[in-house]
Amino acid sequence: MSTPIIDELDQEFIDSFRSPASAGNRIRDLNPISFAVIMVACAVAAVTLPGPWGPAAICLIYVAVSIAAGVSKAFLPAYGKLFAVVGLILFVLRAAFLPGEHVLLRLGPIAISAEGIAQGLDFALVVMALCGAMTLFFTVTPMKNLMLALELRGVTPRATYVILASFQAITDLGKNTKVVMDAQKSRGIETEGGMVGRVTAFVPILAPVFLAAMSQTEERALALDARAFNSRSRHSYLVSLQPVGAAEIALVCAVAACAVLSIVGAAFIWN
């Protein structure tokens, strides 16, 4: 059984560039900068609202947003892991070592107090709300959309290129390690034994692989120059982002206003 060779042009795909890029979801189609403002506002609110309910609510909002944006499958496990590792460690450290008057439990030198638990909870939740803003932002926003939005706002293509290329370099490095392992196997070096075998096969060539990658940067720079990358004329863009509508502006303003209110509240009311 052989799959037919595709030689017809995928017109639908080509036409997709004629209209603004859409992920088919209102939240994911928000302008990356709008969404960034919203996430920053959430983070500000998490810091300023009284704990533990303030930051906890913000964390729940992330969960709700991720479900609404259709990215919960990617977001929830990642965020869950952050909670389980970073959140828990922060909480335990604070709870165990902060001194307090109402001691609930004494384990040798460690005295766990009610104040420690309360402060640990506050602190861990605030940090988790900050992490959540970052995680959710990068789960919802494709890097290339963010860079496009930044370029349209006047950030130089050089800067966005460096960021995008760095991410690609990380992926490439991962792929290179596979190639390296294949090359090692091919010359008869055991890599299939346990951890020790793998490491001894891998480590000696790490540095050279890295150096080889660096030596290619010159060629890459030239190839990029051949694509008129250094041209000073105005760049144009194949991909366009969804236009920012009145509703989106209103939403961003409303969320930002909430953050401002929470700052005011923190300054004059609950602190």
């Binding site: 190639v179 390296v180 294949d182 090359a183 090692q184 196997k185 091919s186 010359r187 008869g188 070096i189 055991e190 890599t191 299939e192 000696p204 060539i205 050279p208 692989v209 080889a212």
Partner: peptide, 24 residues
């Protein structure tokens, strides 16, 4: 058998030498 064992009998030179050369 492991690839390394087979490869000692059957040597394979990669298409792209950069994938295979690490020495300084």
């Amino acid at each position: 058998q492991t690839t390394a064992t087979t490869a000692r009998t059957v040597g394979y030179v990669f298409q792209n030498p950069d994938d295979q050369i690490f020495g300084s």
